[in-house]
Simulated assay, not measured.
Amino acid sequence: MKIAFAGKGGSGKTTLSALFTRYLAAAGAAVVAVDADINQNLGAALGASPDDLAGIPPLGTHLDEIKEILRGDNPRIASADAMVKTTPPGRGSRLLDMSPRNPLHSRFGLPASGATLMVTGPFSEDDLGVACYHSKVGAAEMYLNHLVDGPGEYAVVDMTAGADSFASGLFTRFDVTFLVAEPTLRGVGVYRQYAEYARDHGVEIRVIGNKVQDESDVEFLREHVGSALAACFGHSPFVRAMEKGRHPDLSELEGENVKTLAWMRDSVDAATKDWARFTRQSAEFHARNARRWANAATGADLESQIDPEFVMGPEALEAQRA
């Protein structure tokens, strides 16, 4: 399953992304954690050292290499230069699984807390004043577009703060979006914005209340987000220690918060996996981007990259292996 953690800056989404990743990995699941936030803190939250993190090749600075891997021998994609962040897979594209053989995992991944960590990377000096962060997050979008995840396999993505992911089709790439919200007006404001943008696209949004101190906080969240409120994290010395850069053993997590993580996993596992919709939305957002800017930028008709007979999913992966 593909899972996004979203929310306003400071809501605790990175901490909860790391905690959920650790929980899944400790249960023996195959987990990839992707830091797609402009503030690259997920690796540290997973216990990776600064030296280890410095050695990870960022996805966002190796776009041409990633495009060459993913386009495979798809006849509809003439070259890496003709591939943009929304280019969908088709027959001949290199589809990805969750195994160590995955070329992006082996090239760009770092073992961290039992998971594989990949990062989109921070802004560089060359980016300042001339580029937006969406160019780097596009690498994560391409990865998710080509990833066939199976039962018991999880891709956890720490999203950039706020509603920036709506600048592309990235927000539709997930089976479940956990929106982390503090019991404040600013915290629930991001939920309203997210829900409004996602309303017509079948996006599953489940609000996780964070930094909840008492029942009045829970009631505040219910008042503002209604039935979207799925679970809450209460006051947690464990989480507080994580936010200070320490990494207590998972066995020290408070019992009520362990139950919340277990519910979150059960909720994710119960979500409907709809590969036909995933494929259709890839094509829709690619066509929109092609008409809006990508055709002019590349000098080519990029809508022709859409393979109308291709459906992403396990059958397409098996056909590739065959």
Score class of each variant (00 low, 15 high):
Ala112Ser: 05
Glu65Thr: 14
Leu104Tyr: 11
Ala112His: 04
Leu63Ser: 06
Asp73Lys: 14
His62Phe: 02
Thr61Ile: 04
Arg71Phe: 00
Gly92Thr: 13
Lys67Leu: 00
Pro111Trp: 10
His62Glu: 15
Lys67Gln: 12
Ala82Gly: 13
Thr87Glu: 11
Val84Lys: 08
Asp73Trp: 06
Thr61Gln: 15
Ser99Gln: 05
His62Val: 10
Leu104His: 10
Arg76Glu: 01
Asn102Leu: 06
Arg91Lys: 11
Pro89Lys: 06
Ile66Gln: 10
Arg91Tyr: 11
Pro103Met: 13
Ser93Cys: 14
Pro75Ala: 11
Glu65Ile: 02
Thr61Met: 07
Gly114His: 08
Ala80Tyr: 06
Arg107His: 08
Ala82Glu: 03
Ser106Trp: 11
Glu68Cys: 02
Pro75Asn: 11
Asp73Ala: 12
Phe108Gly: 09
Pro103Glu: 12
Leu96Pro: 00
Asn74Val: 06
Pro75Cys: 06
Thr86Tyr: 02
Phe108Ala: 04
Ser79Met: 08
Ala112Asn: 04
Thr87Leu: 08
Glu68Thr: 07
Asp64Tyr: 06
Asn74His: 10
Gly114Asp: 09
Lys85Cys: 07
Thr87Phe: 00
Asp81Ala: 12
Pro100Ile: 06
Ser99Tyr: 00
Ile77Lys: 12
Pro88Met: 00
Leu95Asn: 12
Met83Arg: 01
Asp81Leu: 06
Ile66Ala: 00
Ser79Ile: 03
Asp97Leu: 03
Pro100Trp: 09
Phe108Trp: 04
Leu110Met: 08
Met83Ser: 05
Arg107Val: 10
Arg91Gln: 14
Pro111Phe: 06
Met83Asn: 06
Ala80Ile: 01
Thr87Ala: 03
Gly90Pro: 04
Ala115Val: 04
Lys67Glu: 01
Ala78Ile: 15
Leu104Gly: 07
Arg101Phe: 06
Arg71Asn: 01
Asn102Tyr: 03
Arg71Asp: 02
Ser113Val: 03
Arg94Val: 07
Pro100Leu: 08
Thr86Met: 13
Gly114Leu: 07
Leu95Val: 10
Arg76Pro: 04
